[in-house]
Computed example of a mutant assay.
Amino acid sequence: MKSQNTPEFQSKVGVLETNLDEKKETGWVEKKDGTFEYKDTASTNNDSNSLSLGDPTKDMKGYM
């Protein structure tokens, strides 16, 4: 986790923190090359909330 404590990573966390009042899920997929892809296409209704991050790929480092 310490190696991920970069300004870029922290800015992505900041975006998620501003989304806490949203009615739908949002997130980031981080690639091994250090780039991030924003995900905000959650399907939502009164009973469920689902965000697809896509199928895992070899260049995917993680998601938040």
Rank of each mutant, 00 (worst) to 15 (best):
42 A>C: 13
47 D>T: 12
30 E>L: 08
42 A>E: 04
52 S>C: 09
56 P>R: 09
59 D>C: 05
57 T>Y: 03
21 D>S: 10
20 L>H: 06
27 G>I: 04
15 V>M: 09
26 T>D: 11
53 L>M: 13
48 S>C: 07
64 M>H: 06
27 G>H: 08
48 S>Q: 14
7 P>E: 11
19 N>H: 13
19 N>G: 14
30 E>N: 03
63 Y>R: 08
35 T>S: 13
56 P>A: 14
44 T>N: 11
63 Y>A: 14
42 A>S: 13
59 D>W: 07
49 N>Y: 06
42 A>Q: 06
31 K>P: 01
6 T>Q: 00
55 D>C: 10
7 P>R: 07
5 N>E: 15
41 T>P: 04
35 T>M: 03
1 M>E: 14
9 F>S: 02
49 N>I: 11
48 S>A: 15
45 N>Y: 08
41 T>H: 11
5 N>S: 10
48 S>I: 04
4 Q>P: 06
64 M>L: 14
12 K>Q: 03
48 S>L: 13
46 N>G: 09
48 S>Y: 14
12 K>A: 01
39 K>P: 08
64 M>E: 11
63 Y>L: 13
15 V>K: 04
31 K>I: 04
10 Q>T: 10
7 P>T: 05
44 T>E: 12
12 K>P: 00
42 A>H: 05
8 E>I: 02
40 D>W: 03
6 T>H: 00
27 G>D: 08
49 N>S: 15
8 E>P: 05
25 E>K: 09
51 L>Y: 03
22 E>Q: 14
20 L>A: 14
54 G>M: 03
29 V>Y: 00
2 K>M: 09
63 Y>M: 08
52 S>E: 12
14 G>I: 11
56 P>K: 10
11 S>C: 02
34 G>R: 00
19 N>T: 11
14 G>N: 15
62 G>F: 05
41 T>A: 13
37 E>G: 02
17 E>V: 07
1 M>V: 08
22 E>F: 13
58 K>Q: 06
51 L>T: 02
34 G>L: 00
49 N>L: 07
54 G>S: 04
38 Y>W: 11
7 P>Q: 12
18 T>D: 13
56 P>V: 10
21 D>W: 08
20 L>D: 13
9 F>E: 01
36 F>R: 04
39 K>H: 12
19 N>I: 06
53 L>P: 01
42 A>V: 06
10 Q>E: 15
27 G>F: 10
57 T>P: 00
39 K>C: 12
18 T>R: 13
43 S>F: 10
44 T>W: 07
21 D>A: 13
9 F>T: 00
60 M>E: 06
43 S>P: 03
61 K>F: 05
48 S>D: 15
54 G>C: 05
4 Q>G: 11
27 G>P: 01
5 N>C: 15
4 Q>M: 15
53 L>A: 01
33 D>V: 02
8 E>V: 00
29 V>L: 05
22 E>M: 10
13 V>A: 06
41 T>N: 11
33 D>Q: 04
37 E>V: 06
6 T>E: 00
1 M>P: 09
42 A>I: 09
40 D>N: 10
41 T>D: 15
54 G>W: 05
20 L>M: 12
52 S>I: 07
31 K>V: 04
28 W>T: 02
